[in-house]
Structures are given as structure tokens and as C-alpha cells.
């Protein structure tokens, strides 16, 4: 499997899109830090990129890379390699490349900024980690979708819909639900609902660092228990790690039954 991951990374290193992605992040990173005026505003902008763009780019790359390398996947399947390893290897290879682009692309502008101004780096490191996790999760989900359908267009469509659901629509429905059932105790529901969406989970994790002052103003007991301590952050990030196992399971399961 390591060889496959290594190969995919090498392959992507030559890929124009990886470079494009890296440059994009560099550009965005510098632009945000230079033009947003102050660091806390930059952090918020970075947060939006991490929450919306990394899953999207992961999704697009996951689908694209899978369909573009279907031939190669078939070649691999005929080799004495475990089926699971072929797909998981692809997934991790793409994820590591994307993640590296992200970390370099945003990390370099940040280091440049850090060298000039004294700002807290821990929030930023957390952002990068979450971006890495989200990218990996969505690349995996996109691959799981792609493996389950041969139709490229359909695969793209499903994967994008999945992203849209998670990134935007889910929160809309959650908000609607919270408004509709406002007369009921909703604390637990609200918290549990975020667990089922990795983007929300990542968002809550960073909120615990960024907006703790506001969160502490919340009245509910369960909420305070969860948000008011480091337990909250540890819990949120471990569930996020569980989320990273989901594509693993899905891909393994789907690939096991597929014919090529």
C-alpha cells in the first residue's frame, strides 16, 4: 500500500492541477494576510476557506483522480495486491498530496506573516489540521462515490451534491429544525446534529478556540459541559478522526463487491 501511496503522490506531483492548487492556496494565503487588515479577520477568512474550499477541492480531486486513473487501477488490480490496498492507497495518496499543498500553500504565507508580527500560531495550526482532515474525508467520500458508479458524469454529480449537502444545505436544515422545534429542549439535538457532518464538527472544533467567549455565554448545561472544557475539543476532534475512518470503510466495502 505504501508503494501505491508513494506512486500516487509522485504522480500528482507532476500533475498540473496539484501545482495549480498549491499556487491557488499561496495566492489566497498571501492575499488574505495582506489585504484583510488584521489577523483576527484573516483567521475568519481562513476558516471559511478551510470549511468550504478544502472539502470541495477534495471532492473534485477525488472524483477526477479516480476516473482519470481507472486504467491504472485495473492494471493494479491484476497485480498481487489486496484490492482494498489499491483503493485506499489511491485515496491516501491523493489526500496526502492535497494536504501537503494546503499546508504549504497556506503555511508559507503564514510563516512569512508570523516572522513579521507577533500572533498566536495555535489557531492557525488547528485550522491547517482541520483542513487536512476535511480534505481527506471528502476525497475519500468522493472516491467511494466514484468507485460505486462507472458513469463519470454521474459520479461527479453525486460527489458534488454530497459536498453541497454537507457544506451548505445541512446547516440550513439544521437551522430550520431548530426554529421549528424551538419550544423543545434542543441542546442535545443541536450537538448531536453537528456530529453527523464533518464540516460542522470541524467548525465547532475551531469555534472552541476562536469564539469561546461567546460560547461561554450560552445557558444550557449540556452545552456548557461540552463547550466549556478541553473535553469538547478532544471529543470533537476524535469524532472527526472517526469520520476519516468512514471513507475507509465505505471504499473497502464498495470495492469489495465491484467488478472491473
Amino acid at each position: 500500500m505504501l508503494k501505491i501511496i508513494g506512486y500516487v503522490i509522485k504522480d500528482l506531483l507532476r500533475n498540473r492541477w496539484t501545482l495549480f492548487y498549491l499556487l491557488f492556496y499561496l495566492l489566497v494565503g498571501f492575499a488574505i494576510l495582506i489585504f484583510s487588515g488584521d489577523f483576527s479577520k484573516s483567521t475568519v477568512s481562513f476558516l471559511q476557506i478551510i470549511l468550504i474550499l478544502t472539502p470541495l477541492i477534495g471532492t473534485l480531486f477525488g472524483v477526477m483522480y479516480y476516473y482519470n486513473s481507472r486504467d491504472f487501477i485495473e492494471l493494479l488490480l491484476a497485480q498481487p495486491i489486496r484490492r482494498r490496498d489499491v483503493f485506499i492507497g489511491q485515496w491516501l495518496g491523493v489526500s496526502v498530496s492535497l494536504g501537503t499543498s494546503l499546508v504549504l500553500g497556506l503555511g508559507i504565507p503564514f510563516l512569512w506573516y508570523f516572522a513579521q508580527y507577533e500572533v498566536a500560531g495555535d489557531q492557525f495550526v488547528l485550522l491547517l489540521l482541520l483542513g487536512f482532515a476535511l480534505g481527506t474525508i471528502f476525497t475519500g467520500l468522493a472516491m467511494a462515490v466514484s468507485v460505486s458508479t462507472d458513469n463519470k458524469i454521474r459520479g461527479f454529480g453525486y460527489a458534488l451534491v454530497l459536498w453541497l449537502l454537507m457544506a451548505v444545505v445541512y446547516d440550513g436544515f439544521l437551522l430550520l429544525a431548530l426554529i421549528a422545534f424551538r419550544d423543545y429542549p434542543l441542546e442535545k439535538f443541536a450537538l448531536i446534529a453537528t456530529v453527523f457532518n464533518p464540516i460542522d464538527l470541524a467548525r465547532i472544533t475551531i469555534l472552541l478556540k476562536l469564539d469561546i467567549s461567546a460560547l461561554m455565554g450560552y445557558t444550557g448545561a449540556v452545552f456548557r459541559e461540552f463547550l466549556g472544557s478541553t473535553t469538547g475539543m478532544i471529543l470533537a476532534s476524535s469524532v472527526l478522526i472517526l469520520w476519516m475512518l468512514l471513507p475507509f470503510a465505505l471504499i473497502t466495502l464498495i470495492a469489495k463487491k465491484r467488478d472491473f
Binding site: 475568519v44 476558516l47 471559511q48 470549511l51 468550504i52 457544506a167 451548505v168 444545505v169 446547516d171 440550513g172 439544521l174 437551522l175 431548530l178 426554529i179 424551538r182 434542543l186 441542546e187 439535538f189 443541536a190 450537538l191 446534529a193 453537528t194 460542522d200 467548525r203 465547532i204 469555534l207 476562536l210 469564539d211 461567546a214 460560547l215 450560552y218 445557558t219 444550557g220 452545552f223
Partner: peptide, 20 residues
């Protein structure tokens, strides 16, 4: 306003949907 009316909505803080 939302947070004031329905405190639980704070879980949606900084959500893209809410930004919109």
C-alpha cells in the same frame, strides 16, 4: 437575533449558510 431567540442556534456560528 437568532441566537438570542433560540440559543441553541449558536452551534451554527460561522457556518457558511449563516454567513449567506
Amino acid at each position: 437575533y437568532m441566537v438570542n431567540e433560540i440559543p441553541e442556534t449558536i452551534v451554527l456560528l460561522r457556518s457558511f449558510f449563516v454567513q449567506i
